[in-house]
Write a protein that binds this DNA or RNA. Structure first.
Lengths: 220, 220
DNA sequence: AATACAAATATTATCGTTATTTCGTTGCCG
DNA sequence: CGGCAACGAAATAACGATAATATTTGTATT
């Protein structure tokens, strides 16, 4: 089974494995918003101890994917149309910042990686939603990779994950098939490769807002 | 002993207490960058078990204040002039976004809270660095509070903390006494109260860049 | 309806295991 | 004969599991 966000196959530490698994389950909606996350349940389901589960849940709290209730455990963070709009808006603002800096610093290594990411995304099977999602994120992050600000990249990555969650919740199949996303990606890539900042930003914002407008109606 | 960032007096849970204490110690430079954070040492120093310490360290990792080394424990995140510049730059960009939105949504409740925060900051004893720092952060966050985006506020708060750490590392006494920070705060407040977006942003950016230019020479 | 008791569950501490690091010894080369 | 390097063993410290504690919630009885 492929994971949409990151690879869970490398079991470096039990905590990390649990963290990645749970994050994946939340983002893909396999664990719905508001669901209580009982440690006893999780530790048997994930075949591990309570400590790794607690630590993983703490980390997810920092990612805004899990809420910690005073002394009453954890639950999956709620979703709302307002938050969806907030994420969309923030993403547009932060990624424009990052994209402009990235294009300003762009070198051939960055360009090569971007072209490859785009190619792999297009080659990926669109019906295998999770696999496609991995490549889709890689492409978008590759765009920003040269911005020179690790913290900003981290913020963008977090926002991406939060946003993907809404895509899954809205039912993924529909949102991608209706529009010609490939053309939008192509436009972004071309503008980026030719270092056309304004065009790249316009294309990217357009891409986000189109998806956003479509999804906004389905949330909540 | 007052805490610069947040109150540690309310011991809701042991994990939270440890988290706040450690964060404070790192931000104020009492634990220097690069220092190894041994769990055994911390758990006796903080009079608690290993689990809360581990969990607190995990949380601090998400705040970028602590680095996790694969299976070799934790250490205080390194500092660098490059990162300082990155934080300064990001702060300018994100806070301008937040400030404009905040002013757009501003109401009287927000204005009252802001005026109070400013008053309390000015009333605070400038020689008690930690106490002053609490009020300084409150004032700056009060400016942005009405922006309507909790996630953005969270990012700004994180960046603020990262930045304060550099202030402490550079030796706090000097950086504040040399310039007329009060006048800069006053200008920001006045512009904000009169809802003058451009002036408020200019004043705020100016405030940051002046402090930044001063500190940049002392870091590393 | 309110209070008390019981069951469930989060939280914390302790213990055992595993992995990494460091120090010491031995062997080889200069 | 002396020094350096590499291998190995012991110590140290993180990681994971289990057990104990405290808080909360639900239920039952007064």
């Amino acid at each position: 089974m492929d994971k949409p966000v990151e690879d869970t196959a490398s079991p470096q530490s039990s905590t990390r494995r649990v963290y990645l698994t749970l994050r994946n389950d939340i983002i893909t909606g396999q664990i719905p918003p508001g669901e209580r996350l009982k440690i006893d349940v999780l530790k048997v389901a994930l075949d591990t101890g309570a400590s790794p589960v607690r630590e993983a849940l703490s980390l997810l709290t920092s990612d805004q994917l899990v809420d910690r209730l005073d002394q009453r455990g954890f639950r999956v963070a709620a979703t709302s149309r307002a938050q969806f709009q907030e994420i969309l808006n923030l993403r547009c603002n932060l990624e424009e910042l990052a994209l402009r800096d990235s294009l300003a610093n762009a070198d051939t290594a960055w360009e090569d990686a971007l072209v490859l990411a785009h190619h792999h995304m297009n080659k990926a099977d669109r019906n295998d939603v999770d696999a496609y999602e991995v490549h889709h994120k890689r492409f978008h992050m590759a765009l920003l990779a040269a911005c020179g600000s690790p913290i900003l990249l981290r913020f963008c990555s977090q926002l991406y994950d939060l946003n993907v969650r809404y895509r899954y919740l809205a039912g993924r199949a529909k949102s991608y098939s209706r529009r010609n996303v490939e053309a939008e990606h192509r436009a972004i890539l071309d503008a980026a490769v030719s270092r056309d900042m304004d065009m790249a930003c316009t294309s990217l914002m357009d891409h986000y807002r189109k998806t956003g407008a479509f999804l906004a109606e389905q949330v909540d």
